[in-house]
Simulated scan of single mutants.
Amino acid sequence: MKYSVVVVDDHTLLSQAIEGMVNTFDKFKVLYTCKNGKELADKFSASPKNIPDIVLVDVNMPVMNGIETTELIVEKYSSVHVMALSVEDADGTILKMLKAGAAGYLLKDTKKQVLETALLEMMDNGFYHTKDVTNLLIDSVSGRGNNGHKFKDNELTFMKLACTELTYKEIADKMFLSPKTIDGYRDCLFTKLNVRNRVGLVMYAVRNKIYTP
């Protein structure tokens, strides 16, 4: 017996690659793929046979994004485990997905064996969290994420670039990231540092010698 998996991702080639990878796992088989949450919801409504054990869902998708999709699954199909599989690594985005009900969060550059382990643990334990995600959850509950001021490398890079005259779009291009990911870094840092705008972020960076004019 194999556990059933559905892949929800608007990038067709990537979706097919994930499907091919999962189908090599001994205990898992992909039922079908969808391009967004709306398409998934329609499949679920069409037949109980379309409801899998696990949904691997991207965060940024048109029509219905990963957060909305996760909320829908958790509300109406509570037996389905949701694993986020995304390029987005901003703390704010990860927390939003977990709060929506995702039982795990992996980046798309995750190694094959890690993905297989994650799927197995989700079926055995109901969830799978990497060390980074576990620490993020602990920090979000304890408040250490706001007071300890520990930054990821990409957050530091973003902060330094935010101190220049570059626009957020130009920063995204320079860091080879999507504008939405940059927005995630910005919002997360605003919350973490208790600042309201870019000026406050620059002042913090200069004051703490993260950026030297």
Rank of each mutant, 00 (worst) to 15 (best):
L85H: 04
S86G: 09
S86V: 06
S86K: 05
V87E: 03
E88P: 01
E88G: 02
D89E: 15
G92A: 03
I94F: 02
L95H: 03
L95T: 02
K96D: 09
K96G: 01
K96W: 00
M97K: 00
L98F: 08
L98C: 11
L98Q: 05
K99S: 09
A100R: 01
A100I: 03
G101W: 02
A102L: 09
A102T: 11
Y105W: 11
L106H: 09
L106E: 11
L107K: 06
L107V: 14
D109F: 13
T110P: 08
T110C: 14
K111I: 13
K112W: 10
Q113H: 13
L115I: 15
E116I: 08
T117F: 14
A118S: 09
L119Q: 02
L120I: 15
E121Y: 03
E121A: 01
E121P: 00
M123I: 15
M123S: 02
D124H: 07
N125P: 00
N125E: 10
T130S: 13
K131I: 11
K131L: 12
D132Q: 11
D132N: 10
D132H: 05
V133I: 13
I138S: 06
I138T: 08
D139F: 08
D139N: 11
S142V: 05
S142H: 04
G143H: 02
R144D: 14
R144M: 14
G145C: 10
G145N: 13
N146W: 10
N146I: 12
G148C: 14
G148A: 15
G148V: 14
G148M: 15
H149F: 14
K150Q: 15
K150H: 14
K150G: 14
K150A: 14
N154T: 14
N154C: 10
E155S: 11
L156T: 12
L156N: 06
T157M: 13
M159Q: 07
M159T: 09
K160H: 13
K160N: 14
L161C: 11
A162Q: 03
T164E: 10
T164W: 06
T164A: 05
E165L: 03
T167M: 00
T167C: 02
Y168H: 05
K169E: 03
